[in-house]
Amino acid sequence: MNPLALEVERVGIRRDGRSVLFDASLRLSKGEFLGLLGATGAGKTTLLRLIAGLEQVDSGEIRIEGVTASTPGYCLRPEKRRVGMVFQGLALWPQMTVRQHLSFVLTGVSGVESDACDRWISLMGLEGREDARPERLSGGEQQRLSIARALCPSPRLLLLDEPFKSLDEPMADRLGPEVRAICREQGVAVLFVSHDRRRALDLCDRLAFLHDGCVVFDGPELRPDSREVHDAVKAFFEGVVFHAGKRAEG
């Protein structure tokens, strides 16, 4: 069995004659929590969309658990990939209640217990809000619902696109480790896209840095003072003091 949850091999995509991603490569093991950082427009969200199958690659290959999911001319349908995704804009369905969101994505998923809906509602602290529609939920509750929707069908890979953006600091500080613990417990690999340097350093097992469509850093320990580190990474982490590859103070 392939221990790798995701392999992105030299993937590229062009839009309007411009390379959005160029030879981007990444590997992600099962249960691993990888932070993908980079400035605005670096191609982070595009890479997530390619992995989810929402866009087609122009070059390279994407494999999920060893099975080819995308090559130029072939794109496994998103619903067949067993990938969960938390969208930047959340993309909740306005006509559905909290419970309906979860039961909708759980319908037809094999191996899911009948009380899975209640378990996820309780796990995400949404008790008492089961019958509320998104417009009646607070920003934090919407975010938790979005995470629950992505995680409850037991995906092989979870893609998080700025998942804590609309949460206050204490809520994000609480929810981040909780999501990581749940994913670790279930063996779900996570690709976490963020601008938030501090949270990425705190949560992730490994970091990758995307600059102008290329992965310019990928490793468990980041030393921005090292000579080999790309200038864009140094600029991104300017002002953060590191000890042994981990953040000491910001």
């Binding site: 349908r77 619903e79 990938v83 995704m85 993309a91 909708f104 929707r149």
Partner: peptide
């Protein structure tokens, strides 16, 4: 984005 969320969720 709602359509994409549905597709990614297995619909």
């Amino acid at each position: 984005d709602e359509e994409e969320a549905a597709r990614v969720s297995g619909c």
